[in-house]
Computed example of a mutant assay.
Amino acid sequence: MVARIYSPAKTATQSGRGKTHDWVLEYVPEAPCSIEPLMGYTSSSDMKQQIRLRFATREEAVAYAERNGIAYRVETQNERRVPKIAYSDNFRHDRFMPWTH
């Protein structure tokens, strides 16, 4: 079973960047989820997909995977690009899009 090591992205519903500095090791699901016909619950026979380990650095996560013989792949972290704009740019007279409400 293959594990993936990644640094989680910022949640879309929050403006803070909490929990984005850790590195996570989690297993890739081997079996697809199935829907139980009577109640409609989603279930799976793959128990390893419930395991999620957090590490302070990528090197610690890789060392843990190698020490325990876990096949892994590291997903690189994309840098966040924030455009430098001012609030007053919304009200400029030479905007390329007209002001609408």
Rank of each mutant, 00 (worst) to 15 (best):
Y64I: 03
T76V: 09
T57A: 02
H101A: 08
Q50G: 07
E36C: 08
L53W: 01
A9Q: 10
N68H: 14
A3W: 13
N78Q: 12
M39E: 14
R80D: 12
G69Y: 15
N68M: 11
V74T: 10
P98I: 05
V24K: 02
E36N: 05
Y6T: 00
I35A: 06
M47L: 15
A63G: 02
T100K: 06
A12P: 00
S43W: 11
W23Q: 05
F91C: 03
F91I: 07
V2N: 11
V62D: 03
P98T: 04
T100D: 12
E60F: 04
A3L: 04
P98M: 01
H21S: 15
I5W: 04
Q14K: 15
C33Q: 11
T100L: 11
N90L: 13
Y41I: 04
E79I: 05
V82I: 14
E59A: 13
K48D: 05
M97V: 12
V24N: 01
I70V: 12
Q49Y: 00
A65M: 11
E75Q: 07
P32F: 08
R58F: 00
G18A: 05
E79C: 03
E75I: 11
I5M: 03
D89A: 14
Q14C: 05
E75P: 00
S43E: 10
E60W: 03
S88I: 06
S7E: 03
R95E: 09
K84N: 06
E60N: 03
S44M: 04
C33D: 12
F55Y: 02
T42L: 11
V24G: 01
A9D: 14
Y72A: 06
R54D: 04
S44G: 04
P37K: 02
S7N: 07
D89R: 06
G69L: 14
G16H: 15
T11C: 11
Y6L: 01
P37H: 05
A86M: 10
A56T: 13
A31N: 10
A63I: 09
G69D: 15
A61P: 00
Y6A: 00
T13E: 03
Y87V: 05
Y41H: 14
V62L: 10
D94V: 02
F96L: 13
A71Y: 06
Y72C: 05
Y72T: 07
V28D: 06
P29M: 10
N90P: 00
Q50S: 07
T20Y: 15
S44V: 08
N68C: 07
A65T: 09
Y64Q: 02
E30F: 00
N90I: 01
S88C: 08
P29Q: 13
M47W: 13
V62F: 14
N68A: 04
T20V: 08
E59T: 09
G16S: 15
H101T: 04
R58L: 12
Y6I: 00
P32W: 09
L25Y: 05
Y64M: 01
A65I: 12
A61M: 01
H21I: 03
K19R: 15
S15K: 15
T20L: 10
M97I: 14
G18E: 12
P98N: 02
